[in-house]
Amino acid sequence: MDCVRLEYDVDGENFASAGNASESVKRTLKQLGVSPASVRRVAIAMYEGEINMVIHAHGGKAIAEIYPDHIGIYLKDSGPGIADIDLAMKAGYSTATENIRSLGFGAGMGLPNMKKYSDEMTIDSTVGVGTTVYLRIDF
């Protein structure tokens, strides 16, 4: 099926651009007339995934595939990977440093928020190789 496909490089060194991919997808969905409630869910889930790539994985790629009734988001990085996904999914669990926390990140709510606001979420991660998160949000 035809879809609108958007691809972004998420810069792992630059906090100033963190959130740009999510902002761009949000703007596109608004222009396509997707309901504000769905746009909001996408913005939350994708921002958390984008930020995780910046703070935990030295950046990566974000790909959004927009279909008439849903969006699929792929967040791919070549970072350290997640050793224990169940633990990482726990609300409040974070390995963020004090420095990262002082910027407002590291509440340990990113993965739980992504789960809560998406209709499907899969995490494919190998330690030392990287992580791919897939999110589907139905409109």
């Binding site: 959130g19 740009n20 902002e23 949000k26 913005a43 939350i44 921002y47 407002g104």
Partner: peptide, 14 residues
């Protein structure tokens, strides 16, 4: 009381 650049991105998203 947060005053770094990420505040702007979040403000746009919300």
């Amino acid at each position: 009381v947060m005053n770094n650049v990420n505040v702007a991105a979040v403000a746009t998203l919300i």
